[in-house]
Amino acid sequence: MSPPLVEVSAISRTYAMRSGMFGRAAAVHAVDGVSLTIAKGQTLGLVGESGSGKSTTGRIVLGLEPPDSGEVRFDGKPMAAPGTTAWRAQRARMQMIFQDPLGALDRRLPVATQIREPLDIHGLGTPAARDERVRELLRAVELTPAHGARYPGALSGGQRQRIVLARALATKPDFLVCDEPVSALDVSIQAQVVNLLCDLQAQLSLTLLFISHDLRVVRQISNVVAVMYLGRIVEIGSADDLFARPEHPYTQALVSASPAPGRRSAGRILLSGDPPNPAARPTGCAFHPRCPRAIARCAREVPALSAVGGDRQVACHLVTGAATRDAA
């Protein structure tokens, strides 16, 4: 296995949230002790429902937000302090793409100008070389220079997401954080963008952190998948194996909730209750109020993420490695 490009160790992030105008500020643990490593050229998929902390994790990994505790190391070195020259150099090597391409683009500028912008900011190449690079990037995302002259409003959703991708690739980054990059796209267009991402990753040996709530898309693109619930990773393992044999009761429910053509809902695991409020996190295992298998211990002790055989790690008192895997 290649050496890790990104190492995240025990990062936490807490926000203060006031309930009502005079309410007391409550602490919301958006991310709570998350550790991850992403090997060079690999894709780590991060799945979870809204409020699980997957986007905050992405922002911290990219240095858009400092963690309250814990550390992110990029290419063996800790993240530089924001605003310094070292930080800018590091940031050129890592980029992000978001769900809403129209929100990420300036409607009043031709898209080619926007693709060129990172090159101007980081002072890469001569002006003539920059124009050539823009054409090359447009080709890489399967668009023509004619598309570059257009404004975002004159492009379709899929084309806009390609422009955002081209701009993110302008500085030849090593690492790309994709936060729900295809969620707003129709199925047929989604498949185009997913295929394009896979191709570009192989050509440019990119390392990806791919954040999505869509299990199918995540499995398609990821080598390793981590499942988050209320700010913590509850299960992590290789993509195919994790979805074929989920161990954590939450992952099992999530996989079972994913509708599949040709499969009727027989044997579906239906969770009771709503996703809990991150400001009022349950004691012990955060999942225990909705867990069909919870025991008394789950309400008292927070389960630690521990290896259960193979490359799988699970945070559950009821999953304890080889014994349960054989029994299941």
Partner: peptide
Amino acid sequence: LIGALPPLDGPRRRLTAIPGTV
């Protein structure tokens, strides 16, 4: 449409994207 849907189990295959747009 059906070919564009990534499978949740079995071997991974390249998605058959429909070219162009609506």
